[in-house]
Structure formats: C-alpha cells, structure tokens
C-alpha cells in the first residue's frame, strides 16, 4: 500500500525540493512507498481531507484541529521552536502607522491560509474592523499579497511571519510591519491517519531521532526544521481548545 504524504499549502515554495527529500526519507524509514502530494491551495487540500485520502500530513494548526477532532488523526510530532505567527504589513510610505489608524473600508490582501487569516483578523479587531466592514482581496500566495501592497491595490496585507521575513530584500524594504503576533503556542503538527496503526509509533520514533544521522539532519535543514519533538494528546487538545476560543468573533 502506498501512503500519501502532504504538507499544508502555506509552506514557502523555496522548501518544495526539501519536502520531496523529506518524503524519500519517510519512505526509507517506514519501509513502505510514500507519495508526496502537493496541493495547489487549501480548497484542494480540504477536498482531500474530506475524501479521507491523506495518511501523513504536516498540517497548519487550523486543519490540524479539524483532522484530530473530526477525523481521529493522531498527533505524531511538532517542530521545535517554530510557532506559527502572523504579520500585518503595509506599504512603507503608507499613512497607516498603527492598527487603530485603520478605518472601515480598509482594503486587505490575504491568502486562503486559515490560521494566518484568523490571527490577522483578530489583530484588526481593536480598530472595530471585521469581515463585514473591510474589502478583502484573496491572493494565491504571500508574494502576491506583497505585490498588492506595492501596487496600492490594498492598504494592508496578511502574512505568515516566517514567509514575510523570507521575502526578497527589494520587496521587504518597501513594506512596513504594522503588527506581529507573539502567540507562541500555535504551531504546525505532523499528523498520521489512525489507519496507520502501529506505524504511527514507528514514525514518531524515527522523527525524534531524525537529526542524529547525516541524511536526516540534512533533510530537516532543507525544510527549515531544527528537530521534531513529541506531542501528547493533551498538548493537541489544548491547541484545539485555543483555536476554538480564537474562532470567536468579537
């Protein structure tokens, strides 16, 4: 049986070759064929989730919560020291200097990344903004969000912080951070479908030792992960409760 492995579509595309290498590493250590499925966007991923066709996933917190609670996925590991944070940025020359400067009708460039969108919507609440009084423009990726700011098609943009920090120098220098989240406790999780049974413990064991051999260490470096750490069910339940609390609109 071939296992299907995928990664939340919010990953930085510069790490795509790294995830292929990671898949090869997975296949070698699990001793079964694994297919790395790359989804173009969250709609495609969510269709695959609904079809129950994913065996192993490096999931963003929002999808991880759904997969664990609704589909019984098991949390295997999380990356060490890599919380998901979000950035709201504006054009460097913008007259907007604080969240409280934002007014109804603000034009927002965003992606379909659910947790970044949620965190950023929370960060604009102090300005009395919500999905009903802003103009939202969906972009396919964060580079296009940045370009929307540079072309004055949007007043602010929502970014995954690590992707914002990785934007090229010429783009980054024309943008200004309005606010950066410092939540620390929300992160991606590597999950396995319960049908993997005993292979889940095997997978966890390999991941926790991954940095101890040269090939594993290089595979980790190629996806910008320092190491994996174990997560217990209560860690995951806590993160899910947090996500539930955050999905409440003020």
């Amino acid at each position: 049986m071939t296992l299907t492995f995928t990664v939340s579509p919010d990953f930085n595309t510069k790490y795509l070759p790294g995830w292929f290498v990671f898949n090869t590493w997975l296949q070698r250590h699990l001793g079964v064929p694994t297919h790395f499925e790359v989804f173009d966007g969250f709609d495609e991923l969510h269709r695959a989730m609904a079809a129950d066709s994913i065996d192993i996933i490096y999931a963003n917190p929002f999808d991880a919560a759904r997969l664990v609670r609704d589909h019984g996925y098991v949390a295997v590991a999380r990356p060490v020291g890599r919380p998901d944070e979000a950035v709201i940025a504006t054009h460097e020359g913008s007259a907007i200097h604080a969240v409280e400067d934002l007014l109804p009708g603000t034009r927002i460039a965003t992606t379909d990344d659910p947790d970044v969108h949620m965190m950023c919507m929370i960060m604009i609440e102090p300005a009395d903004l919500n999905s009903g009084n802003v103009a939202m423009f969906r972009r396919d990726n964060y580079v296009l969000v940045a370009k929307s700011l540079l072309k004055n098609e949007a007043d602010i943009g929502f970014f995954l912080a690590e992707t914002f920090d990785d934007l090229s120098g010429p783009i980054r220098s024309q943008l200004r951070v309005l606010v950066r989240s410092q939540i620390y406790v929300i992160n991606h999780l590597l999950l396995a479908h319960p049908r993997l049974g005993a292979q889940i413990d095997q997978l966890r064991g390999h991941l926790l030792q991954m940095g101890n051999d040269a090939k594993g260490a290089m595979a980790l470096q190629d996806v910008a992960i320092k190491a994996w750490e174990s997560v217990d069910q209560e860690d995951v339940e806590f993160m899910i409760d947090l996500m539930v609390a955050l999905t409440v609109t003020a």
Partner: peptide, 10 residues
C-alpha cells in the same frame, strides 16, 4: 481555557 485579546476601544 480562557483566551484574552486586545479589545476595541469602542
């Protein structure tokens, strides 16, 4: 679990 965030001044 209680989560508190920055409120709107209004």
């Amino acid at each position: 679990t209680s989560v508190r965030r920055k409120p709107s001044r209004t």
